[in-house]
């Protein structure tokens, strides 16, 4: 199988997606991969996107699990709050006490929640045909992949725009940023809230999957408006 490492930026996503569509055995996954994505040359202003955020019990996809997911579809011009979706799901393993306060999700909410498998088809439907936008893809991508593999026996991988890596390009990887680091300056924080502050975006109460998804969508709009162009092709942004 064609493997795509997340570090490869100029990957052949259309080729990968169509190959997976042919190979997929699971119906929901097959139709997800078969839904055409915007071509790599599509100007970002014409790309349908969906912001995705999830809360997990920890940082390691092999030991921790997803507890909630939020998605908001949007374009460069509008974030469609009315079409948002939010799910709490029950992790296979018992939640450790410490993570509960962190997530603002209670035991009873989790106890009544379905397993991710029950909402997976709807989630895939909402992501299909859109470019998924996340802040820090190294959580969303492996967790989702791991969870789907465990439930459907197949992996899940798709192109993403990562607002954190767009920030990193400016504040961590530029020559100027490297020079400042060389001088011993502390690196510019690129977590969601500090990044938003740089664009004059208001502070939201964090750590709620849907609020953070919304916040990520706004951040991408601000990043494109500030550093890119409405005609910037999708391939310059996805990874």
């Amino acid at each position: 199988m064609l493997r795509i490492r997340s570090t490869q930026r100029l990957a052949d996503w259309p080729g990968y997606m169509s190959q997976r569509a042919d190979q997929a055995r699971d119906g929901a996954l097959a139709s997800f991969f078969a839904t055409p994505l915007p071509a790599p040359d599509t100007p970002i202003k014409d790309v349908p996107m969906v912001a995705l955020d999830m809360e997990t019990t920890g940082l390691d996809e092999r030991h921790h699990a997803i507890v909630s997911l939020g998605v908001v579809p949007f374009t460069l011009d509008r974030i469609r709050v009315s079409q948002r979706r939010y799910w709490v799901v029950k992790p296979p393993r018992v939640l450790v006490e410490s993570s509960i306060a962190y997530h603002h999700i209670t035991h009873s909410e989790i106890a009544q929640a379905p397993d991710l498998d029950a909402i997976l088809d709807e989630l895939l439907e909402r992501l299909a045909g859109r470019i998924v936008v996340v802040h820090f893809r190294h959580i969303e991508r492996p967790f989702l992949n791991e969870a789907v593999k465990a439930r459907r026996g197949e992996s899940l991988m798709f192109p993403m725009i990562d607002t954190m890596s767009l920030e990193a390009r400016r504040h961590r990887q530029s020559m100027w940023a490297r020079f400042k680091r060389w001088l011993g300056r502390p690196p510019v924080p690129i977590r969601l809230q500090p990044s938003r502050e740089r664009y004059g975006l208001p502070a939201y109460q964090g750590h709620h999957a849907l609020v953070d998804a919304l916040a990520t969508a706004e951040l991408l709009q601000a990043q494109i408006a500030t550093h890119y162009h409405r005609d910037t092709p999708l391939r310059a942004l996805w990874c």
């Binding site: 949007f74 509008r78 974030i79 469609r80 709050v81 009315s82 969508a217 408006a225 500030t226």
Partner: peptide, 14 residues
């Protein structure tokens, strides 16, 4: 209102 708003960001000067 809250459930129906749509959101957009505008750079200064746009």
């Amino acid at each position: 209102i809250a459930t129906h708003v749509e959101i957009s960001y505008f750079k200064a000067g746009s």
